[in-house]
């Protein structure tokens, strides 16, 4: 198990992209690759080789769940935690995302000051299993 350094953030909204980038790079000190769509993530995942993937659920084109499915075919996600970011927080939805193979769900609106530590927690939990 390595160190959490590179985070791939897949999000279609540019404002949130920007906020998350600052929260993760400046507050968390991570290296962030922002993808604007699921397709872009699929295109870049192998080159970037992220330690952690943050996936927005609702995106035009390929949505979060679909992206995860396809990512799984491209790379081995055993050691790469994937967290969904969503506003929908019904317990059965959380269960559904877990069933897709997500490590956790980060609820929108997220607190940018805490996002980095949230990610770190998820990463640790994933590797403590």
């Amino acid at each position: 198990m390595g160190e959490l350094k590179r985070i791939m953030h897949v999000e279609d909204d540019p404002s949130i992209q920007a906020v998350a980038r600052v929260a993760l790079e400046v507050v968390g000190g991570f290296e962030v690759l922002t993808c604007t769509s699921g397709q872009e993530a699929l295109d870049k995942v192998q080159a970037f080789a992220p330690d952690f993937i943050l996936l927005d659920v609702m995106m035009p084109g390929i949505d979060g769940a679909e992206t995860l499915e396809r990512l799984r075919k491209l790379v081995d996600l055993t050691d790469i935690p994937v967290a969904f970011m969503t506003a929908k927080v019904q317990p059965e939805e959380v269960a559904y995302y877990h069933s897709l193979g997500a490590s956790d769900v980060i609820i929108k609106p997220f607190s940018p000051m805490q996002l980095a530590s949230q990610v770190r927690n998820i990463w640790s939990k994933h590797h403590d299993r």
Partner: peptide
């Protein structure tokens, strides 16, 4: 969604 960005 925009609010998340604003608050963030």
């Amino acid at each position: 969604t925009p609010l998340t960005a604003v608050v963030g």
